[in-house]
Amino acid sequence: MLSKRLIVCLDVRNGRLAKSIKFVDTKDIGDPVAKARQYYEDGVDELVFYDITASREERDIMLDMVEKAASQIFIPFSVGGGIRSVEDATKLREAGAEKVNVNTAAIKRKEVITEIADAIGSQSTVLSMDIRSVSPNAKIPSGYEIVINGGVTPTGIDALWWAKEGERLGAGELVINSIDADGTKDGYEIKLTRMIADAVGIPVIASGGAGKPEHLYEVLTEGHADAALVASIVHYGEYTCRQLKEYLDGRGIKIRLSY
């Protein structure tokens, strides 16, 4: 039986870990590759490097970091942030990323999803969506709207429609990031995650809101998610990946434990 996945996201700026991440051990401060290696050894199933500034100049720094990570981490990892074109995606793949996440660029020009999927395969093309809840209306019947620019700019696009459209255009996975839940540590947006997971035929990764191991359990069961993405819950040292996975295993969730 296929396991559920635990995914850790690392925010990267200028090839270094973003300051928003605090650390319990001093050894790895600032170096995303060393931190990623630590999570790899701790049993994370997949990693995401999110380039939070992603200007043109920083692209090359990111590529260099991806190369280094690829020689240290022997599990799948993806890269997101500022990916605008097939060229961006192909370069990251060649540097060693298993998958790339597109977000804002796909809102601006949705064909980019198909172009990237044609170039590197659907299985490597992840559509990442930042979503907030709104009152349902004619334009946004699901009551969930896509937002961009780190959650500050509304788009008027219905999230449920966009998830299905993303699948149709060739995305192989979806990241459902709830802007409302993000940073609250009150748990994932279960209703939203489940609505989208039930509407598409591709795997769904839940993101935003993890504060306790129970939250992961909820989104992987009631939320119908295939994977749970975490950040601060492990970055702040509250839990290790091992602890989260053992908790899930104890509650009957199929998860990888021999590593």
Binding site: L2, S3, Q123, P203, D226
Partner: peptide, 27 residues
């Protein structure tokens, strides 16, 4: 869902030098 993406158990049916050491539950 298809594609089948992620970690899954490999159940060894028949011994082979390349599969030596793979235990039940290894993914």
């Amino acid at each position: 869902k298809i594609p089948h993406i992620g970690w899954n158990d490999v159940k060894v049916l028949k011994a082979h030098p390349l599969l030596d050491g793979i235990k039940e539950g290894d993914q």
